[in-house]
């Protein structure tokens, strides 16, 4: 069985007569279908994981890189003064697109997950946060720190680099892990189809001998098997993919935090990617069965 346009076309157009020469195999056929479906289902999640991790790495790497926070740690009576001082400095700092102090309500919302909603912020020496959005060229963090130290003693500049770097690294690793999972799943599908095809070829030794005797070419015999397994893998993976996508669709949304953490799902054109899973499964089955059939036929005169 050579890989050619003709041999691929033969898988889909088919030949009813050629189909009949391989006896139907009910139970093992269902096992192949099930395994292909299960693998495709898992592949959808591995793909979703990779893409989500990719989005995380990107947002943490790029979007957060263009923001910084200034913390005003000062006694309550001086807090407002120092905050205004810091904002004045920021107005004249190169690379700052905008800067604004968070209101009490916003700070309360940030702390609510940890302290509960009933916290009276005004009684506590909670530092005031200033959110700084940078322009594309960015700020000179060291220079800004020096100016702040001179004029606003309670100000601490945090450009997020300290905690961002390990998160970006973790997200990148997670993305890599997702792709490794997809590669492993593909390899497992190839191994599973090879085993199933090998078993079918061995069980149908008499069929193959008879076909050879009456003048069937290797391509004719191989296509009968390849077609069967390719269509099974394609169908099984199709069902698995649809179920996987439905499950992803029904995953609970991450809510407000979703902007920051991103949900484990597909966004935009990424919804097209899972559709490639059955195609990949079919291609893997095509190649694996073809190779198995070639090996078996070579042993026969």
């Amino acid at each position: 069985m050579r890989l050619s346009l003709g041999s691929i076309r033969a898988v889909f157009t088919g030949d009813k007569e050629a189909d009949k020469v391989v006896p139907p195999s009910g139970f093992t056929a269902q096992l192949t279908l099930f395994a292909a479906a299960a693998m495709a289902f898992l592949a959808v999640f591995a793909l979703a994981l990779s893409l989500a991790a990719g989005r995380l790495a990107q947002s943490w790497g790029e979007e957060l890189a263009r923001s910084a926070t200034i913390r005003i740690v000062a006694p309550l009576d001086q807090r407002q003064v120092q905050t205004d001082g810091a904002l004045r400095i920021l107005e004249t700092t190169r690379g700052v697109a905008s800067a604004r102090a968070l209101t009490d309500a916003e700070q309360q919302a940030l702390l609510a997950p940890w302290f509960g909603p009933d916290l009276a912020l005004s009684d506590l020496p909670v530092p005031r946060l200033i959110e700084v959005t940078e322009t594309a060229e960015g700020i000179d963090a060291a220079g800004l720190r020096l100016r702040l130290a001179a004029e606003v003693p309670g100000a601490v500049l945090d450009d997020h680099a300290r905690w961002r770097a390990p998160l970006v690294k973790a997200a990148s690793r997670l993305r890599l892990l997702g792709w490794v999972a997809i590669v492993l799943i593909t390899a497992a599908v190839a191994a599973m189809i090879t085993l199933a095809a090998q078993a079918a070829l061995a069980a149908n030794g008499q069929v193959i001998r008879v076909l050879r005797l009456v003048g069937a070419t290797d391509d004719y015999i191989a296509t009968a098997f390849v077609r069967r397994f390719t269509l099974r893998a394609l169908g099984g993976a199709g069902v698995g993919m649809v179920l996987g996508m439905l499950t992803v669709l029904l995953l609970p949304s991450a809510g407000d935090a979703g902007n920051f953490l991103t949900g484990l799902g597909f966004q935009g054109w990424h919804w097209v990617l899972p559709l490639l899973i059955p195609v990949l499964a079919g291609a893997v089955a095509f190649a694996a069965t073809g190779a198995a059939a070639r090996r078996t036929l070579q042993e026969l005169t």
Binding site: E17, A18, K20, V21, P23, V207, G215, T217
Partner: peptide
């Protein structure tokens, strides 16, 4: 081919 009828077996060389 034990799963095909006698007629189909006899005609097998034509089919292949």
């Amino acid at each position: 081919l034990d799963h095909l009828s006698v007629a189909e077996n006899v005609a097998l060389p034509l089919s292949v």
